[in-house]
């Protein structure tokens, strides 16, 4: 049993996405802004007639917002519930093939902000790379304490 992953970079860290979750890659262009959203939601784009939100993975992992430019890449992924989301990453680097015994579940305590979004690890060329949990990333309401506070646009929290 072999699995394939797409590897991408955020800053100096490398992460993996299961290849079957990846729909396509796009180069970055400024999306349409949406009000009242957390800072990691960069806006919406049109993917073949569907409205798809773009999440800044770096901001989502608590590593600060990305200064996105033309060299940045958006990975369109699909969650288990069928929802599509675009992930803004610094670069897509490789396609990684791993055998079953190279893969392990997420160690119980890893520390670091990225942990909640990782489903496991893969040993590749003497490195340990985290596999992103796409369903978690796509899940808009998943709370990251302290991170979203104050990130809402003006009228948030002002419901009657």
């Amino acid at each position: 049993m072999e699995s394939q992953f797409v590897s991408f970079e955020i800053g100096d860290a490398t992460f993996l996405i299961p290849i079957e979750r990846v729909v396509e890659f796009r180069t970055w262009s400024e999306p349409t802004a949406v009000p009242h959203t957390p800072a990691y939601v960069r806006g919406i784009v049109n993917i073949r007639g569907e409205i798809v939100p773009i999440y800044d993975v770096s901001a989502r992992l608590g590593k600060g917002g990305t200064q996105a430019g033309s060299r940045h890449v958006v990975v369109i992924v699909r969650g288990n519930d069928g929802r599509s989301v675009g992930l803004l990453v610094d670069a897509v680097t490789d396609i990684v093939t791993a055998r079953a015994d190279d893969m392990a579940p997420m160690p119980a305590i890893e520390g670091g902000d990225a942990t909640p979004f990782m489903s496991g690890v893969v040993f590749v060329a003497e490195k340990i790379l985290g596999v992103t949990d796409v369903d978690r990333l796509v899940e808009e309401t998943f709370p990251v304490s302290g991170f979203e506070a104050g990130a809402d646009a003006p009228a948030a929290g002002a419901a009657p």
């Binding site: 949406v34 009000p35 569907e50 939100p53």
Partner: peptide
Amino acid sequence: VKSLEKNYRKVKGVSGATILGDGRPAL
């Protein structure tokens, strides 16, 4: 009218989105 909820969620003050002639979404 396109749904924002399909891939994202309901947004206050916005009933949906559409795609304008230039291919970009607008609220």
